[in-house]
Design a protein around this nucleic acid. Structure first.
Length: 553
RNA sequence: GCCGGAGUAGCUCAGCUGGUUAGAGCGUCGGAAUCAUAAUCCGUAGGUCGGGGGUUCAAGUCCCUCCUCCGGUACCA
């Protein structure tokens, strides 16, 4: 790392608990974050991985009304399901929390009051549409009416789908509620505003110091700066959310995008409460030597690179993000992933049918780091069969077969080394250096490619040294070869651990080694001792047949 | 409409501040090997870098314009 960070705090964008999470979420923010933290842990760094469900906002309240159930029922359902799916996919959160907890409510209200007490917030009264029938103010996109520009009759209060005009609800002709269809009335409402415009200069200065941010993030923000940041209302007329902790405003709640990012902080608090160290979270959030990294999809850039940092600046106590490595989107079979039913892959379904490591590997090797990418089931099949099975799995298997068949299931000694032996170790070490740089620079696709390329060379080493001949002609030579191949197997357990956590644990077990050998330091050295007894090998990646893929596509 | 991103081999994707014959994996075709989940390794072929114009000794890379796709557009998150 370019700076002497003592601690690393990693977040994945909170999952909105209004539906099942799909593979796009994994590709955008969950998987890169998990790979990153697993790598940092291998290096022995002090890292926390924070995520959770975002459970407030208009959309959840509206879903509850439509389905005639409570918001709580909705969030419970999706929080539980999504959390399980994430863990099934190997996400190694230190905590997966949610924003409906008491800790979060208190933390958000404290945050709000901190700004309120410093007189940073102001109130403003605006005219809004109010439904007498529903007894509620209507959010912009829950008002439907006729577009004043093109006459389209199904325009929503924020924009016209037909002509693309940006609208406000008051401009619509014949406005009506999207839920009940009744005609709303104009009513005034008073809200708190966050003075985002005042922080533009500080934000630009701050981002100016970031020379390793991805261009898409920098340019996107530059666009907003150029336009000029405007203050934002941070309270809403809803029933569902964190109540505004100010007298006279207790019927209102905090804007979901105000409280959601605070969720990263409250989840960290909750984690340390569980650890019986209630102040422990401060060591991370109040510490200028913490490296804070937000992983997210491109739809979230403004909130993590502009709005939340401004909130933190206003508050003053917290560390700001070191990086916001935003990914683009992953689509399915060439068309948008989340658009309509039948064209979506839920994580909960995928993990039931497919080896989670295969899912992780496929997504990681085609991660939308620079642009939108496509997920194909046929691609997953090819990656599983041709790379995971044929290259990695096969190398491990052919090595173990030799150890079992000719060396009684133990690690043979390493005798006199030849050039080809020292070369493969040099190759391993240069590969490790490259992969380490890949991970530190958020280049996960490169990391996967570079990792698998070492295994390709390991297979070449196996071919070139021909242990099946050596075992007959020169047993000592064969001992050395298989010793080295087993050392490489151990190295691969470490190297692939960020991407393939389940399989690498199996490899470690096959080697009869413990977690203490799962460290990046030990990946470059040949640490296995001759005579050490191995466990029985197992097939790590079963071949996926065409018929299975046809069922999934 | 406006802001940002993208369009590169049959397919999926790399190509930082412009610099010799544009790269990788898969797929294709040929070869070597036979220890291994018939799994490996080597080699071959494949592209007027979305269209057009410009700057430059030199452009996939910079500028202009057009087409197509994606995200945002401040009350969806």
């Amino acid at each position: 790392m370019e700076k002497n960070y003592k601690k690393i705090l990693v977040t994945s964008a909170l999952t909105y608990a209004n539906g099942y999470t799909h593979l796009g979420h994994i590709a955008g923010s969950l998987l890169p974050a998990d790979i990153y933290v697993r790598f940092q842990r291998l290096l022995g760094r002090d890292v926390l991985y924070i995520c959770g469900s975002d459970e407030h906002g208009t959309a959840i309240e509206m879903s509850a009304i439509k389905e005639n159930i409570t918001p709580k029922e909705i969030i419970d359902k999706y929080h539980k399901s999504n959390k399980k799916a994430y863990y099934d996919l190997g996400m190694s959160f230190d905590i997966y929390s949610r924003t409906s907890t008491d800790v979060h409510r208190a933390t958000s209200q404290d945050f709000f009051m901190n700004l309120y007490n410093k007189d940073l917030l102001y109130t403003k009264t605006e005219k809004q549409l109010y439904s007498e029938k529903e007894k509620r103010f209507l959010a912009d996109r829950f008002v439907i009416g006729t577009c004043p520009v093109c006459g389209f009759e199904e325009a929503t209060g924020d924009e016209c789908e037909n002509c693309g005009s940006s609208l406000t609800p008051l401009e619509l002709k014949n406005p009506r509620s999207k839920i009940t269809g009744d005609t709303p009335v104009v009513k005034e409402s008073n809200h708190f505003y966050f003075p985002l415009s005042k922080y533009q200069q500080s934000l630009e200065t701050w981002q100016g110091t970031k020379n390793n941010w991805k261009p898409n993030v920098i340019n996107y923000c530059a666009g907003w700066f150029k336009k000029g940041l405007q203050d934002r209302a941070i309270t809403r007329d809803l029933d569902w959310g964190v109540p505004v902790p100010v007298e006279g405003y207790d019927e209102k709640v905090l804007y979901v995008w105000f409280d959601a990012p605070i969720g990263y902080i409250s989840a960290t608090k909750e984690l340390f409460i569980e650890r019986n160290n209630p102040d422990g979270w401060k060591d991370y959030w109040y510490n200028g030597e913490t490296k804070l990294v937000h992983f997210l999809g491109k739809d979230n850039i403004i909130f993590h690179a502009i709005f939340f940092p401004a909130m933190l600046m206003a508050h003053g106590d917290f560390v700001l993000a070191d990086n916001v490595p935003a990914n683009e989107f992953m689509n399915l079979e060439g068309s948008k992933l989340s658009k309509r039913r039948g064209n979506i892959i839920y994580v909960k379904d995928a993990v039931e049918k497919i080896n989670p490591d295969t899912i992780r590997y496929t997504i990681a090797s085609n991660m939308p780091e620079n642009r939108d990418t496509d997920f194909y089931w046929s691609d997953l099949q090819a990656k599983n069969n041709n790379e995971l099975g044929a290259i990695l799995g096969n190398f491990i298997n052919r090595t173990f077969v030799f150890a079992n068949k000719y060396f009684d299931g133990t690690i043979p000694p390493q005798n006199e080394l030849q050039d080809i032996d020292t070369n493969i170790k040099l190759r391993l070490n240069s590969g490790l250096e490259k992969i380490e740089a890949d991970y530190e620079n958020y280049k996960f696709k490169d990391a996967v490619t570079d990792s698998m390329n070492i295994v390709r060379d390991a297979n070449k080493y196996f071919n070139d040294t021909e242990p099946w001949k050596a075992v007959k002609e020169n047993k000592e030579r064969c001992e050395t070869i298989i010793n080295i191949c087993l050392q490489l197997v151990h190295s691969f357990a470490v190297i692939f651990h960020p991407v393939l956590p389940f399989s690498t644990e199996k490899i470690l077990h096959m080697l009869n080694k413990g977690k203490e050998d799962l460290s990046w330091d030990k990946a470059g050295d040949f640490v296995l001792k001759p005579g050490h007894r191995l466990n029985q090998p197992e097939i790590l990646f079963n071949k996926i047949e065409d018929s299975e893929i046809e069922k999934l596509s």
